[in-house]
């Protein structure tokens, strides 16, 4: 099991964004929950209000060794985007040297040099490996934990097991497929 606290800097600030229904909120909550269980300080802040299927949705997660200040992420260490409009909107909020994980099924590679750009077909992989487009968020989460070497599949699955038992198998397949994309 990866020792989560060991590989973190002081803070890991994440913005996850996509369209409503892509499971952005859950992706962020799982990261926050995993951070909490690893003994770190976390905050999870959703965009709220007009979040409906087909609309836009984003959440901000701070995972920190010390008491987090603002839960609002001005500049992110990591940006996870699931579609093109979210990429356009949030790319300026990514720090120099930050990690961009984008869904190449639904977004085009940006021309950027000062960041770590990684595109993977999250949606197509979800359909192929887990049998559902809706599992694209779990594929993205798998890719994230593989790139960052933060949290193990077991840690994430333990949370899903407690909270969404009926979808465990689909989520397991999607997470592992996400990890395989990176390797």
């Amino acid at each position: 099991m990866v020792k989560s606290a060991k590989i973190l800097g002081q803070d890991e600030k994440i913005i996850a964004a996509g369209s409503g229904g892509q499971g952005i909120m859950l992706l962020g909550k799982l990261l926050a929950e995993a951070g909490m269980r690893a003994g770190l300080r976390v905050t999870w802040l959703p965009s709220y209000g007009a979040e409906v299927r087909g609309g836009t949705a984003n959440c901000m997660v701070v995972i920190s060794k010390s008491k987090p200040g603002s839960p609002y992420v001005e500049k992110a260490d990591t940006l996870i985007v699931m579609n093109q409009p979210s990429l356009g909107r949030f790319l300026p909020r990514l720090k120099q040297g930050g990690l961009l994980l984008y869904n190449s099924s639904l977004a085009k590679a940006p021309v950027q040099t000062a960041i770590d750009v990684r595109g993977y077909p999250f949606t197509e992989t979800a359909a192929a490996a887990a049998g559902s487009l809706k599992a694209a968020n779990m594929v993205a989460l798998g890719a994230y934990i593989a790139v960052k070497k933060m949290f193990s599949v077991e840690e994430i699955l333990e949370i899903i097991k407690e909270q969404k038992r009926d979808l465990l198998e689909m989520n397991r397949k999607a997470l592992l497929a996400g990890i395989a994309l990176v390797r």
């Binding site: 926050a32 909490m36 300080r41 976390v42 905050t43 999870w44 802040l45 959703p46 709220y48 839960p71």
Partner: peptide, 10 residues
């Protein structure tokens, strides 16, 4: 405020 209401923390 709305942010305190919405933010999740342990």
């Amino acid at each position: 405020d709305g942010m305190l209401g919405q933010v999740m923390e342990p």
